[in-house]
Nucleic acid binder design. Structure first.
Lengths: 254, 254
DNA sequence: AATTGTGAACTCGTTCACAGCG
DNA sequence: CGCTGTGAACGAGTTCACAATT
């Protein structure tokens, strides 16, 4: 699932399982919605439903953070929002650079989700001289010649790569050399990085292929659907897990 | 993770583990690159390196598909490309619709990765009447009033949601009612769907938050770095896992 | 009475290590 | 001899089920 293996055998700090870390943002989103509606407390059952997981998992997840609930009552919404934000490091400011301002890079720059939680687009960088100076989402694009300086001047530790696949590894190396230690990669390539650098990837084509696999399987099942089990129009299920919360998987294999 | 729970207790078909399915596209990509360079065979070691996994995992993964290698030699590149493509259902055509043609939807429409492997953008749909008729990536945008007809006329079973969060659930329900059974969701919301429908999500904000968590942890470790363990400038490691292989995921709202 | 927090059982995924085969 | 294929050991993650607590 996630990325960067734990360098240093196992800083026993207080190991929160990776799968749990991957779900914290989900809980935080649900909690924020409750907070905006001024809901004071939630039970694990309610919150789990809102986040699309089951309540046992949620309670176990929270147990890694500490005992923030009250038995017989539930969790204080505001308090939990704060605790999770702190745990995720969202109480501080994270300047981010986006490299590769094509269609996708521009879409990311315009994405509102950045601004909201501690993330700030510190700079947009592109290799095309014709782009330099042009504002995208109100931020002037800078030329990649200045990448190192931009990273250092802004104290950037998180970089987003939205370049074509062919340029990604080189960009990645420059980012890392300049001090970036976390990378979100949208280019369809495997990046190789030094120990201590985390890479997460978002790959549209892979997601579609996984869906196609399951889609194909469904088509095959239809034929064999001579037994029970109504086909379409099933009952709405609140539970169907969504995405690789931690990692991967999606539907089931049979 | 994944989605749609197993309807029908357990079609014992031939269970390929979900984690393996999520990696097949990765192998396929590496193999395609080798194929273009006319490399005839690869060892599990070489292919694993190219895909960013370890060789034991790769061999185990392939063992679920069958015995496609030759001991003492390796795997035939072309043959494996075909077998994996077939397993993933990429030997057939998958018409896809994209709903929500904002910055992101437009970027997705322009994304080259679609065309390549069996996926074809059959239609672009948006709720804004002003968009109707405008071509994006050479495809005219259609109004969402016609969503059901578009799905049915094109035999679409895979839908991509790139709308604002508030519209996503409603769009999802219309897609599903019209016959879509696989959804790739870019909106920062938990979608609830009937059994039998697969949802995968891509959430930029979540990915960034996960990176922030690890980034924060690194910062904390620095202070405690009075013992051994050189800080920056570590040796290049081919391994650092990349993202939630199965999954994926994007940003956050919170 | 309600709901959390958690040990224990279980399931899924990864890695080891080597037998089997070309 | 080299490399695949895989049983067996291991580890991570999930679910169960219930004691603890308010």
């Amino acid at each position: 699932m996630a990325t960067g293996r734990t360098h240093r055998p196992a800083t026993r700090s207080r190991g929160i399982p990776e799968a749990t870390v991957a779900r914290l943002p989900l809980y935080l989103r649900a909690l924020t919605a409750l907070s905006e509606r001024s809901v004071p407390t939630v039970s694990s059952e309610e919150l789990a439903a809102a986040a699309g997981v089951n309540s046992a998992k949620l309670r176990k997840d929270f147990s890694y953070l500490g005992s923030y609930g009250t038995r017989g009552v539930g969790y204080d919404v505001e308090y939990l929002v704060y605790q999770i934000s702190r745990e995720l490091g969202l109480t501080q400011d994270w300047p981010v650079v986006i490299v590769g301002i094509g269609n996708l890079g521009a879409a990311l720059a315009n994405y509102g989700g950045f601004a909201s939680r501690g993330f700030r687009v510190a700079a947009l960088i592109d290799a095309d001289p014709a782009m330099a100076g042009k504002p995208v989402a109100g931020i002037p694009v800078q030329h990649s010649d200045d990448l190192e300086k931009i990273i250092q001047d802004n104290g950037v530790s998180i970089g987003v790569i939205a370049t074509p696949a062919g340029a990604a590894q080189a960009v990645c190396e420059r980012l890392v050399a300049a001090g970036v230690t976390s990378i979100l990669n949208f280019a369809p390539t495997v990046l190789s990085v030094p120990d201590g650098v985390d890479v997460r990837k978002v790959d549209l084509s892979i997601e579609l292929q996984i869906l196609a696999f399951h889609e194909q399987r469904k088509a095959g099942e239809e034929a064999a659907a001579s037994d029970g089990g109504a086909p379409a129009v099933a009952a709405r299920s609140e539970s169907a897990d969504q995405g690789p919360d931690g990692d991967l998987p999606a539907v089931m294999p049979a």
